[in-house]
Design a protein around this nucleic acid. Structure first.
Lengths: 362, 362
DNA sequence: GTGAAAGCGCTAACAC
DNA sequence: GTGTTAGCGCTTTCAC
């Protein structure tokens, strides 16, 4: 750690040239066994670890793939923490907790799972993963930085503005993940949001005798949300159910926003069905309904979208559409790897199938 | 992407030397505004992004920090997936789901949260994060690789064998995360496992009139598990409760293993309390108890450890000890950053406080 | 099978 | 303020 040994150190110790050291590490068979062993011993003795930077420079590839997420935490909202400064706090505190807290994590679960899948697939191909999160405006700085350090980049839809995306794509292969395809210039991976929501809507309409559900939408800028809304509309149209009859409520994908909508539902009279554009909000609706003693699915049916674990544990359990999150991450890396192998190939768009999960709430 | 522009290209286009280009990027104030603008324009026009490898080599620092986890997925258990090959699957399928499935994710949540915290703190300090996962034996290859690419490494306890840890530490600063401290050669960050479990045990003993709980242990090689067991024993000793009276059951940290233990509990007669070394298993116990109509906490009290969200949603909600997972990740990076600033400082060990969360189950 | 030498793209003295 | 130049640690022809 004082000063890391280099090929030169290893070469000297083994009594060979640096070229031979390099060969031993990269093409062991091209070196006579005796020589090879001497070099390997020197490597071990010195604790030699090749410099990724030097390798990357010489090889013109880094062996690193990047994954870039939209910010999940506002820059202003970062709680202070300084483990070096304080430290005199006791080893534990005791708190009493009653109701379930709003679970801020669930929204991150999608990203976590994608990350898992991406890491797995990157590893299988001999790459390591670099992860970045877009925060505020210098966000662009982070992703540009990453572009300079990786062989390819997976970018979640909505994390990078279009012009920047083009710039990045000029530097390294880029795969856009989730949302609808945006032009045909980039590789793209997504799930069947539209078809999944349409199928779910058909199921709900069948249950409610075709009466129009209330739709609980998410933030306007959610690409996936838009696709789900599309699927909902399409199924309605197919069933001959006029879109005008549909009441649309808006939330921000959090459980508490769903809770508020649920309370309003109760106040204004229950519809036959409430279809939420994500699970979190649906769970919030269920919370409010449960508190008011409403019978789900007896009085109305409720559905979500995503397939988070909490939906399987709620009462009643939540009917939803499950997206293959981990597979999404894996697929993105697979597509990226293909692009690396075949730079000239036409950009592709892959759509992964979803699962309509019928449970208690509908 | 055909061939990325370099400083030379930028310099030529702006009519300056490469040194000036470098200056504009690193110390803009050291360059006359007119020159600076010309360079910046050239950068924009060309879509120039500096090579991380070249920078890293010249600067002798990469600006990357590494985070290395123990494997969460067995190499054999990786489901096949090839999005490039198949593709003719329908856009969705419909499934019916009744009971809650075993939630394999919960065990990863800890890692996910640590990762979140680490990424956040790395970003705040101008670093980007590289993540790796130990799998099988060439695992060592991954982490060595990482060591060659980063300025510092956070390694989860149990992910790297001791000798390899020493080698890594020779190359880059290393912070060990979780578990008990292992010698005093490395920086170390953990939570108050022992004290937390001791406090919880005292609470349980108070409720049960000092009758010995059944202890549900995890895998033997879990460093955190060992600390929790220690805390349990300490509290028992303090209370004058003989350890011989304690029945110990073993699980593997999964919900289903907890369920099995719960069933056995019912078959063999209920104790006054069941204390599990993690939440997942405690939830499994609750599942079994619930299915058998046992009243918790009336007939016996149950506790967990970790503070996962599912514990707040179970019936009854789970009394547990919450570890500050995200803060752990942040703390690890903070300690790593300190080490980078002060290479000579004595290795430190930071212990984060935990929260004893009293809920319905005890 | 092995060595000498020319880069890879950048930073940082050091001159001017 | 700006240009020249010498590395940073590795891979990879090209000779031998």
């Amino acid at each position: 750690m004082t000063k890391a040994p280099t090929v030169y150190d290893v070469a000297e110790r083994a009594g060979v040239s640096i070229a031979t050291v390099s060969r031993v590490l990269r093409t062991p068979d091209a070196v006579r066994p005796a020589t090879r062993d001497r070099v390997l011993d020197a490597v071990t003795d010195l604790g030699y670890v090749p410099s990724g930077s030097a390798r990357g420079l010489a090889e013109r590839r880094t062996g690193v793939l990047g994954l870039y997420f939209p910010g999940f935490d506002a820059v202003e909202g970062i709680p202070p923490l300084d483990v070096l400064a304080d430290g005199q706090a006791g080893p534990y505190t005791v708190v009493r907790e009653d109701g379930p807290r709003d679970d801020g994590r669930a929204s991150m679960l999608f990203q976590d799972e994608v990350l898992r899948g991406a890491e797995l697939e990157a590893w299988r191909r001999g790459f390591v993963l670099m992860v970045g999160v877009g925060r505020g405006d210098p966000a662009t700085a982070t992703v540009r930085d990453m572009a300079g350090r990786v062989d390819g980049l997976v970018v979640l839809a909505g994390s990078v503005a279009d012009p920047m995306l083009e710039r990045l794509a000029e530097r390294v292969p880029v795969v856009v993940l989730a949302g609808p395809r945006h032009g045909d210039r980039h590789d793209h991976v997504t799930v069947s949001n539209t078809e999944g929501m349409a199928a779910l809507t058909r199921h709900v309409l069948a249950r409610t005798g075709g009466r129009a559900p209330v739709y609980l939408a998410g933030p306007d800028d959610s690409p996936d949300g838009a696709q789900r809304w599309e699927g909902f509309c399409a199924a309605l149209a197919d069933a001959g159910c006029p879109l005008d009859d549909v009441v649309v409520r808006h939330g921000d994908f959090t459980r508490s926003s769903g809770r508020r909508v649920g309370e309003r539902l109760i106040a204004e009279g229950l519809p036959a069905a409430l279809m939420s554009s994500n699970d979190q909000m649906a769970l919030g609706v269920l919370d409010a309904l449960h508190a008011a003693g409403v019978d789900v699915p007896g009085d109305l049916v409720v559905t979500g979208f995503d397939g988070i674990d909490a939906g399987a544990l709620s009462t009643p359990s939540l009917t939803t559409v499950r997206q293959p999150m981990r597979e999404l991450g894996r697929a993105a890396i697979q597509v990226l790897a293909r692009r690396l192998d075949a730079p000239g190939a036409a950009p592709m768009s892959v759509r992964l199938p979803v699962e309509v999960v019928l449970r208690g709430s509908a």
